[in-house]
Design a protein around this nucleic acid. Structure first.
Length: 303
DNA sequence: CGTCCACGTCTAC
DNA sequence: TAGACCTGGACGG
């Protein structure tokens, strides 16, 4: 997805573009979307956004009332927000908020593959853990106080996708985190994490990818540009995910895990590792990074 | 043309 | 632990 950082940047985008903008009328849903109708209509309201892990919440506030409405979004594989004129409505715009301007502009939730979802009058999904980026202490406590949970019997790379404990991590981040911390992906998660019960030091934060996340978010803010369809910066930020010379293997859930070196003891057995492409091994299929607009518009980078 | 792959959940057997 | 849910880009014949 859009992973935690992109969801956060999406919320910054909404607040930047819609700050001081007045919206009006009903919220419109595309015909094709199977998500619920948003029965909200108001002559004048404003929109603010918040993010938590892999969710974004829009709060609609009528100017002459205190009865706000929250809509909670998950982005699936391809969701993002855009703010355009009505004439330039993006393809796959599935939920639309219209401004009171003439000609009006439209805040759109765009989602090519329609794996994304929204919930009117929604709340943060109950079974998702604290946000790794903005609820760091409770995130950390949630992980460390539940290390006896059977979930941590799994390899670390698979547990990192468990949103009950790592709300915000997705497939590119797990690869980048484990690669940069030099942790073999298929080591039992509990083994990796149980050394962290000490006081909160910079090393601890580093070990749980916290520093990585903060870098992504802080440096990513300036990279967010929905008009610019250029993901060069994102690709050059990646050190492992989809990078030539790295190995990849399907994990036990069928997701591709990118890594370097030793896969670790719990690697799926019988699985042939994809060999890294080298000059001597040109027959290997070259992995290409195909990016939908959410990448090109939302993804941050570290120079 | 066709097959494979993609930033993620969901729910059904 | 599979599939189901979707569109579309890359690449092969």
């Amino acid at each position: 997805m859009p992973e935690g950082p992109e969801l956060h940047l999406a919320s910054l985008f909404v607040n930047r573009m819609c700050g001081g903008v007045v919206f009006t009328g009903p919220v419109q849903k595309s015909e094709v979307s199977k998500n619920p109708e948003v029965s909200f209509s108001c002559p004048a309201y404003t929109i603010i956004a918040t993010s938590r892990g892999k969710e974004v919440r829009l709060t609609l506030t009528p100017q002459k009332s205190d009865s706000t409405m929250d809509i909670v979004f998950r982005f699936g594989m391809s969701g993002f927000f855009r703010f355009t004129t009505e004439a330039e409505l993006p393809k796959h715009s599935h939920l639309r908020f219209y401004t009171n301007e003439k000609p009006c502009r439209v805040l759109s939730f765009v989602d090519t593959r329609r794996f994304g979802s929204w919930q009117p009058n929604g709340t943060w999904q109950l079974n998702r853990g604290p946000c790794i980026m903005f609820e760091y202490l409770s995130y950390r406590e949630n992980v460390l106080s539940h290390l006896s949970d059977r979930a941590f019997d799994r390899p670390i790379c698979e547990v990192l996708l468990n949103q009950k404990y790592f709300n915000g991590i997705g497939n590119y981040l797990r690869a980048e985190i484990l690669f940069r911390l030099n942790i073999p992906p298929f080591v039992k998660a509990r083994t990796v994490l149980e050394g962290l019960q000490t006081h909160l030091s910079d090393e601890d934060r580093k070990e749980q990818g916290y520093v990585l996340f903060i870098c992504i978010v802080l440096l990513g803010g300036k990279g967010y540009d929905p008009e610019k369809m250029d993901y060069t910066d994102f690709k050059s930020w990646l050190q492992c995910y989809c990078v030539e010379g790295m190995k990849s293997v399907r994990d036990h859930n069928g997701r591709t895990m990118w890594f370097k070196g030793d896969p670790g003891p719990m690697a799926p057995k019988g699985e042939a590792l994809a060999e890294p492409k080298t000059e001597e091994n040109p027959s290997t299929i070259q992995q290409s990074l195909t990016l939908t607009p959410s990448y090109t518009t939302n993804v941050p980078f570290v120079p």
